[in-house]
Nucleic acid binder design. Sequence first.
DNA 1: ATCAGCACCTGTTGGC
DNA 2: TGCCAACAGGTGCTGA
Length: 269
Amino acid sequence: MPELPEVETIARDLAPKLRGQRIRQIRYDDYPPVFDRHSLSPRLLRGKRISGVERAGKFVVLRFGAEDLRLAVHLRMTGQLLFLPAKRSLPYTRAVFDLDDGKALVFADVRKFGRMRLFAGEPAATLAIGTDPFDRRLDAGGFSSLIARRATPVKAWLLNQRYLGGVGNIYACEALFYAGIRPKRRVGKLTSAERSRLLTALRSVLRKAIRHRGSSVDDYVDAEGLPGAFQNRLAVYGRAGMQCRRCGTPIRRIVLAQRGTFYCPHCQR
DNA sequence: ATCAGCACCTGTTGGC
DNA sequence: TGCCAACAGGTGCTGA
């Protein structure tokens, strides 16, 4: 479900609500494990005060006190991270963090793929997340050197979190549409003009999606349980057989890297 | 050292 | 209407 724009929306919403709140108690369902096998003991969180919330790749990261201690939450496909101002029970709850005054942070997940990890250290290094697409130090040259001479299809490259952190299936398809590049093209063989267009298109579509609070194609909701609005503005994702918004050609669906992949055969070369 | 393919889960949808 | 296969925003492991 959630990619960079959705996770960014959740993190921005949660930050002012959670900052200063203390973790009173934690309850969780551990089958399958909701804390991954690298996680420190969740008991360490009891009594800790939340000092900040940020996004790292597709993770929502909570920080505690002035310490190095952080909790990373990955929503995978159907995870939801919800702030509840008053006690309430939700279906598919996997973990509940009781906060001050009856407030709570709830991690719910129908498919149970989502995981959390408590760790000490820097998120990018610990979680093996590549460069953030919005990193100011990333320019066309840096982007091109991340690509190097890789033979993998450009869409598979975009989905690999070790190069760029945060791009998922929807926005990989969308960015390639706006850059005019077919998903199967070998990433290492893109011209420098194409690479440059791709970085620009990626940033632009991610920025727009954040402005519209993400895409609610299926289960995604923000920290208050409300859907985003960007699903109505998608150019190719989920539009197989429908007319391209730019040229009218039917949008094509193929499977690439085991994922549904959408593109316009006329606008993308 | 890569990388395709499958595993992990449950719910929804579309074809017959 | 009913059944069942295919599919879903992601990633981690295995074996070639």
